Amino acid sequence: MRAVIQRVSEASCKINGLATGEIAVGFLVLLGIEDADTEEDASWLAQKIIGMRIFSDENGLMNKALADVNGNILLISQFTLFAQTKKGNRPSFIRAAKPEKAIPLYELMIKTLENLSGKPIFTGVFGADMKVSLINDGPVTIMMDTKNKDNH
Rank of each mutant, 00 (worst) to 15 (best):
E22V: 14
A96Q: 09
E100R: 03
Q84T: 10
L30I: 00
L75P: 14
N148G: 05
P91Y: 03
I73C: 08
S9I: 06
I5D: 05
I94T: 08
L105T: 12
G17Y: 14
L18P: 05
Q84K: 05
R2P: 04
I49P: 06
N136K: 00
T112D: 15
N70P: 12
R7W: 02
A11V: 05
I76K: 02
V25S: 11
M62A: 15
G21S: 04
N151P: 02
L61G: 07
I110Q: 12
P91S: 03
F122E: 15
I135R: 00
R53N: 03
G26I: 07
V4T: 04
L81E: 06
F93T: 08
L113C: 06
R7K: 06
E34H: 13
K98T: 05
S117I: 13
R7L: 06
M109V: 11
M144Q: 02
G124D: 09
A65M: 09
L116S: 13
K131C: 05
I50M: 08
I94C: 03
I5P: 02
M62T: 14
R95W: 10
I54M: 12
I15F: 07
T80S: 12
N89V: 01
G71F: 07
S56D: 12
L108G: 12
G127A: 11
A128Y: 07
E39G: 15
K14Q: 08
E40V: 14
T141L: 03
G124T: 08
Y106P: 14
K131Q: 11
N16H: 06
S12F: 01
L75I: 12
K48V: 06
D57A: 07
K101E: 12
K86C: 00
S117R: 13
R90C: 01
